[in-house]
């Protein structure tokens, strides 16, 4: 059986907000290490990779690997019924036909339980290699969100160029062009999460669909910083770390020109 108790139930809402615009269903994999999800959008150009480590839960029990196929739209409806301060417990059997969600109010004066049907999802599981990125950019997540939103007002594709001087975001649309350069500022008085840091072995440049990047920024409430990892001609990774718990990562294929 699987049983996991999460003190910050609000975290689950934030995690679902970060994926609900991209996928409609997914297999949550319950394993002794934690709860994970890998799922692609319907056009198979972007991938979501979530890990919630077992240590991040107040109580965690998982005897064997259990795939829990869930409809994300329905899951959002159920988790919405939890208060943002509620303690959430997720429970299911080894071969679950349904999953139980238990919500306890912080003061323990209200207890709700919801049972949701599982579904069999035949998805393609990809092996994402542990790779060394040619360029890694760490920046405030709110800044990245703002930047993607601004760029999307002008064009559909953003070109991201990373040099040691900084990161240049450029787009072109019917009305004109936009360029925003974010420079690394590690020597300032900013707190760590307000800094922009760039680490590169060589300059990298590639174009990406803003529609997807904008969806990824729905994860902003999960972390004060976001990390972008790029390798020439490979998908970009956009990572939001969840404190003491794991991460939400997105991979997006670069645009190609024939």
């Amino acid at each position: 059986m699987f049983e996991a108790r999460l003190l910050q139930g609000g975290l689950l809402k934030k995690v679902l907000d970060s994926i609900k615009d991209i996928i409609t269903e997914g297999n949550f994999d319950c394993s002794p290490n934690g709860l994970s999800l890998q799922a692609m959008d319907s056009s198979h150009v972007s991938l979501i990779d979530i890990l919630l480590e077992s240590e991040g839960f107040e109580h965690y029990r998982c005897d064997r690997n259990i795939p829990m196929g869930l409809n994300i739209t329905n899951l959002v409806k159920m988790i919405k019924c939890a208060g943002s301060e509620d303690i959430v417990t997720i429970k299911c059997e080894d071969k679950p036909d349904n999953v139980t969600f238990l919500f306890e109010s912080k003061d323990n004066d209200k207890i709700s339980d919801f049972e949701m049907k599982t579904m069999t999802i035949d998805d393609e599981h990809l092996l994402v290699p542990d790779q060394t990125y040619t360029a890694v950019v760490k920046m405030p997540s709110a800044e990245f969100q703002r930047l993607c939103r601004d760029m999307a007002a002008i064009g559909d594709t953003v070109n991201i160029s990373v040099t040691k001087e900084g990161v240049r975001f450029s787009t072109t649309g019917d009305m004109g062009t936009a360029n925003i350069t974010v420079r690394p500022n590690p020597s300032g008085d900013q707190k760590e999460e307000e800094r922009t840091e760039v680490q590169i072995t060589e300059p990298v440049s590639a174009g990406f669909a803003l529609r997807y990047l904008n969806s990824f920024t729905k994860a902003t409430p999960l972390s004060p910083t976001v990390t972008l990892g790029m390798v020439p001609n490979l998908p970009i990774v956009v990572e939001y770390k969840i404190a003491d718990m794991g991460h939400v990562r997105y991979y997006l294929a670069p645009k190609i020109e024939d």
């Binding site: 692609m40 056009s43 198979h44 150009v45 972007s46 991938l47 393609e124 599981h125 990809l126 092996l127 994402v128 290699p129 594709t157 174009g207 669909a209 490979l234 998908p235 991979y251 294929a253 670069p254 645009k255 190609i256 020109e257 024939d258």
Partner: peptide, 14 residues
């Protein structure tokens, strides 16, 4: 033509 390759062309299947 500008397009995107599916992710499976970059990452192998499990």
């Amino acid at each position: 033509v500008v397009g995107q390759m599916p992710l499976s062309s970059f990452f192998g299947g499990a």
